[in-house]
Amino acid sequence: MSEPQILVKAHGLTKTYRMGHVETTVLRDVSLELRAGELTLLMGPSGSGKTTLLCILSGMLRPTRGEVELCGVAITSLAEKFAAEVRRGNLGFIFQTYNLFPALTALDNVAEVLALKGMPQAAARQVAREALMRVGLDDRLHHRPGELSGGERQRVAIARAMAGNPALVLGDEPTAALDRQTGLDVVRLLRDQVNERRGVLLVTHDIRLAQFADRVIEIDDGQIVGDGAAHGWAGHDGKVLT
């Protein structure tokens, strides 16, 4: 069996913010690899550096030091417009607040992103329709976000993230605004999207999600303090998953 494809290779990431004379280091010498076929959770307390790490891994923020290779491209040395090209071809995003256009239907919210990536309108709508059907929204294609429940909105966001067939899907607290059961359903759905050519990285506070994960990375005070298989992982509260 061949080695899983490495989607992200980060080495020695340090991020320091300067405000006046005060310097705050939010990431300290972080190194990690993310592979296809894995659902990885990035966990840690508020202010531990999770979101900053996500921004740097996706090429939206430059580290003060260190390198990131995203799908084989050294993204940290690229100008913003080239970094955007790499994101466009390889990444999907899911957010806590869904970030859907309120005036567009579920179908349009997905199709317009595909059109923006260069897909012809007719094909984009077809692919969007299929993506929405895969997340169980067959009967919600023409509903606007305001007419959908929180779970359904997040499903639209998942369809939007998956429709372009990205290699890596990044989620920032995707279940934080959902009730317990809906949150678990959403992560189960994300779990189903993981395959030998795709990986998922979720930033979360929710330890319950670990039951769907392959791997958990724990970060605290800007440093990785734990990195291992989700099965049997002992979190900061000492709870062991079995």
Partner: peptide, 18 residues
């Protein structure tokens, strides 16, 4: 009002002129 959605599109790879 739509800045967050527009930033989302940028995160997904949209160029500033788009």
């Amino acid at each position: 009002e739509h800045l967050l959605e527009l930033a989302t599109l940028k995160a997904l790879g949209a160029r500033p002129w788009e």
